[in-house]
Amino acid sequence: MTTKLEFYDPSGVIEVKVPHAPRLASLEGKRIGFVSNEQWQAYRMLPMLKELLEKDFPGVQVLPIDAFPQGNGLIGNDETAKLVKKSGVDAVIVGNAA
C-alpha cells in the first residue's frame, strides 16, 4: 500500500510572445551595433570585438560602442530601441552582464 501525493508545480508558465530576431546569413557587408551598459569591462571588451569583426569580415561596418545610449538605466528603454532601429543596423551585440 503506497501513499500518492499530488501537488502543483509552483513555477507557473512563461508566455513567449516575441520571436527572437532571425539570424543573418553572413556578416560580410553588414552593419553591426553595440548596446552597452558601460559596466563589467565593456569599455575594453566591446572595442576589442569591434576590431575583431572589422578584421575578420571585410566590408562590415561596426558602429562605435557609444553610438547608442549606455548604462543599465537606458539600454532597455523604448527610446534606445527606436534609436537602434533608426540606425539601420542589421544586428546588435548587447553587453556586459555579470
Binding site: T2, T3, E6, Y8
Partner: peptide
C-alpha cells in the same frame, strides 16, 4: 501549470 506526483510507503 501542471500537477506533480510522488508515491511513498
Amino acid at each position: 501549470a501542471k500537477m506533480l506526483s510522488v508515491e511513498g510507503a
